[in-house]
Amino acid sequence: MTVEIRTTGVKPIRNTFEHLAKRFGDKNATRYQEIAYDIQPLVNFHYKPLWDPTRDLYDVRRTAVVMKDWYALKDPRQYYYGAYTITRAKQQDALDRQLEFVEKRELLRVLPAAARQQLVKTLVPLRHYEFGANMNNSHMAGYGFGTIYTQAAMMNCMDRLGMAQHLSRIGLLTDGNTGESLTEGKRQWMEEAAWQGVRREVEHLFVTRDWFELHVAQNLVADSLVYPLFYQHFDAAFAAQNGSALSSLTDYLMRWYDETSRWVDAIVKTAAAESPENAKLISEWTVKWRDIWVAALEPAAAAALGDKAADVLAAVVAAFNTKAGKLGLKL
C-alpha cells in the first residue's frame, strides 16, 4: 500500500449519500441501506409500457394498498445480495451434510414401501407448489413498488426455486435417483383428487395481478398453512412411524419458513398500520384467501394425515388467526 501517512488523517466531506442522509442523518450507512432505499426510479419515465400503456414502468397503481412512503417496508433481516447469498451458502453447506448422511446410509430408501409411497405422494407434489410460489414472487419483485420490497421478493423468488429443488432431492433420495418419485409426484399434482384444490388455487394465484394481494395470499396465507401442515405436523406423524430421517431434511424447510416469515409478516404489519383503509383491505384479502386455502388443503391434509387431518388443520388455522391478529389484521 502506498497511502501516505497524512491521508489517513483526512476527514470525509460527507458520510453517506444524500437520499440516505435525508432519512437517517449524515452518518455511515449500512450496506443494506445503501441498496434498499430509493434506488428505483420514481419520475420522468420515458415511454408507455407496450404491455400496460395506462401505467408507468414502475407504478404505485399496481396494488390497491396505499403507502405514503413505500420504503417503510423494511426487511427485518436486512438482507442485501451479499448477506443473503452468504447466509444461504452456509445453510446449504449444513444441509448438504444432512443430505449426504441420508444418502450414504440410504435412510429414505430403506423405509418400507408404504412409507416411501406416503412420503412421495405427500411431499414431492409440493415441489410444484414451490415452483408456483417462485413464479408468484417473481411477479411481486417485477411489478412491486420500491427496491426495499422488491429486492426481498426477488430473494424469496430464488429461495422458492431452491425449496422446489430441495423437495425434488428428497424424492430422489427415496427412488435412488431414478426420478420415478418425481414422475409420481407430478401425477399426483395433476390428477389425484387430494391435490386438485391446492393446484387450482396455485393457478388462481397466477391470475391474481395485485402484487400486494399476491404477497398476502401466497407468502402470508398459503405458506402459513402449508408449511406447518406438511413440514411440521405431517413430518411429526411420519417420524412417529418411521424415525427421524425425514425430519433432518424437513427441518431445513421449517427453519427457512421461520426466517422468511419475519420478512413476510413485517411487510403486512407495516402496511396495515399505515392506515385504516390498508388494514381493512389487507384483512379482507387475508380472510378471503384463508378460507379459500383451508378448503383447498382439506383433501391434501386428509390424504397426508388420515383421521387426524381435521384437528391438525384446525390447529394450523388457529395459529394462523392468532398470528394475523398480532399483525394488526381483523379476521
Binding site: 415441489r127 410444484h128 407430478k186 393457478e203 388462481h204
Partner: peptide, 9 residues
C-alpha cells in the same frame, strides 16, 4: 418438470 400445463386457469 417443475412447471405444468394449467387446467384451472
Amino acid at each position: 418438470g417443475l412447471d405444468w400445463e394449467p387446467t384451472y386457469e
